[in-house]
Amino acid sequence: MRRANIYSGGFLALLGLAMILFVIPAQIEEGPAGMMSPRLVPQMIMGLMTALSVMLVVRNLMLPDDGEGSPVSRSEYIALLKIGSVFALALVLFYFAGPLWAGLAIVLGSLLALGERRPLVLVLMPIALLAGVWVLFYRVLGTAIL
């Protein structure tokens, strides 16, 4: 965890600084006089976070190297990529083809991405899930979500 702490702490410290110096002044206006400034709490909390992150980095730098690698394994990065692509595809389909296709893409896409190849499952599961959602909202609850 030592190296992970140094990297993540460094990242968060930089993020905090960027928020204080650039984002908060640009995104939050000064309030009228006589009221607590709307910037106060975000600035305070980002300052605290930056300080804590610096502390995390410093304290871990003082520890001996524990030889641990990245806490995220290769297969986890691949999974992130796979699921991310499934969502990206679903979003594109949502805009250009409609919600039904997006839902189909999520179920079918993730089934395929995770290595499911049995045709029966690939056909039945999306149908069953989407039909279930439809029955629940449009029939049972009598409300529309789309």
Binding site: I83, A90, G103, V107, S110, L111, L114, V121, M125, I145
Partner: peptide, 18 residues
């Protein structure tokens, strides 16, 4: 797991969208 994930992801989307 590979059968659960697709279902949960769909439910997540529906839940968040709701």
């Amino acid at each position: 797991i590979r059968l659960i994930i697709p279902g949960v992801l769909l439910l997540c989307c529906v839940g968040a969208y709701m």
